[in-house]
């Protein structure tokens, strides 16, 4: 289980990076970033998983006393929650940048979106 999650996460990360490094279209690059980010989140959650344990919510199935012995690690889950939102914010700002870049140069090709006025 954990291996699948980690491997899947890593795969997503690699695909994301591949997209960021090879795609010309900046929207695709941003998608690459998004994949990269998602892969990270999968790895995060996967790492906190413990075999045969349940979600860390105290209820009928998980009495407070047994919580530490029967729940998975709550920390990565808390962290991933934050990370997801951060990823969202970053992605949205990136997309706005893409929008503006497109509006100013009428292209989405990253090779054309650079400043050549350097002396």
């Amino acid at each position: 289980m954990i291996h699948i999650a980690l491997a899947g996460g890593a795969l997503l990360i690699f695909i994301g990076i591949w997209g960021m490094l090879t795609k010309k279209n900046i929207i695709r690059i941003i998608i690459g970033f998004s994949l990269f980010d998602t892969g990270l989140h999968v790895v995060l959650v996967g790492l906190g998983y413990l075999k045969n344990r349940t979600a860390p919510i105290v209820d009928a199935d998980l009495p407070a006393k047994a919580a530490s012995s029967q729940s998975v690690d709550p920390v990565p889950q808390a962290i991933v929650l934050t990370a997801i939102v951060i990823g969202l914010a970053v992605t949205s700002v990136l997309l706005v940048f893409a929008l503006k870049l497109y509006q100013s140069k009428n292209t989405l090709d990253i090779n054309k979106l650079r400043d050549n006025t350097n002396d």
Binding site: I13, I17, M20, I26, I29, F33, F36, D37, L40, V43, L44, L47, P76, I79, A83, I86, V90, V93, L94, F97, A98, K100, L101, S104, K105, L113, R114, D115, T117
Partner: peptide
């Protein structure tokens, strides 16, 4: 445009960098 593309590069770069940071932190 200069500011735009600079900001875009910065966001992309810091995106990757903070991803690596996050990975390191969780491990």
């Amino acid at each position: 445009f200069k500011a735009l593309q600079a900001g875009f590069k910065f966001m992309l770069a810091s995106g990757i960098i903070s991803g690596l940071l996050l990975l390191g932190i969780i491990f």
